[in-house]
Write a protein that binds this DNA or RNA. Sequence first.
DNA 1: CACACAATGAGACCAAGTATCAATACCCCG
DNA 2: CGGGGTATTGATACTTGGTCTCATTGTGTG
Lengths: 140, 140
Amino acid sequence: MSDELLRSLDQAGVRLTGPRREIAALIAKRNGHFTAADLIADASKRRLGVGRATIFRLLDLLAEQGLVERVDLPDGRHAYVPCEPSHHHHLVCVACGAIAEVEDCGIDAVTAEASRRSGFTIESHRLELFGRCPNCRSAN
Amino acid sequence: MSDELLRSLDQAGVRLTGPRREIAALIAKRNGHFTAADLIADASKRRLGVGRATIFRLLDLLAEQGLVERVDLPDGRHAYVPCEPSHHHHLVCVACGAIAEVEDCGIDAVTAEASRRSGFTIESHRLELFGRCPNCRSAN
DNA sequence: CACACAATGAGACCAAGTATCAATACCCCG
DNA sequence: CGGGGTATTGATACTTGGTCTCATTGTGTG
Ligand SMILES: [Mn+2]
Ligand SMILES: [Mn+2]
Ligand SMILES: [Zn+2]
Ligand SMILES: [Zn+2]
């Protein structure tokens, strides 16, 4: 359901407009990761009259709130995945696009070690894991 | 020096052309990460007559050989950093762009744990660490 | 219910990257 | 050493992803 997204947006003090509700519904209906282009296609297929810019604007908003996160696919595309606002990482199925979230599982030790070796202060990190989900593994 | 890059390209059986030599020299002269646009600017400043497409083409080639690696900056830009062809990760200074490389330091344990929890088979991963290098930390 | 102002969509615009293609330049081979 | 087959080149057009502007509309608030 898109209610979750809308509620969080409301909380953040942004206006709950018609276009935003419709785009939120499109996002809720997707599974796995999606690109801005996907949403634009969805919207035009359903003849919702929402403008291209509005979709980009909402994605930015959602990303700011941490309700959606940007994933840089290995092929260079920019995709989004709906997710919890807390820090975590994504496993991306290269076959079907399914996403799993994984919370801290030892990354802090890695960054601490890297910091020690390099002398850098580490402020943030990004970890993306690519592979095959249980379904796609068995299906081949 | 750009000789390193050129030698590796030669080894890989690609032709050592004039434009490629010039672009390799531009890359060697940079420090930290750089974007395709940076190189294009460098080239046009020096009135080398190399075409835009040729720069993109060489970057692809170098990336294939692992002589250069793509880093997705947090702001969405695609940057490149010259590096060893062996697997490793990058620390990127958000202030000056300096890069440090760090080899395996515990990441395999993390991916194994993530795989166990999620049921995914993991084929590849990408880890990028962002922070401040020793210079930039003290300089503020 | 009115009003101030956030948000919208149309469209122009920009930047990054790709495709095409005739002209050129490597480099291999005799 | 010269050709000559072929990989590479640059110009140019095109596509795609994203931003900017601005007049118009729609929301939330009081
Ligand atoms: Mn990217
Ligand atoms: Mn690694
Ligand atoms: Zn899958
Ligand atoms: Zn620095």
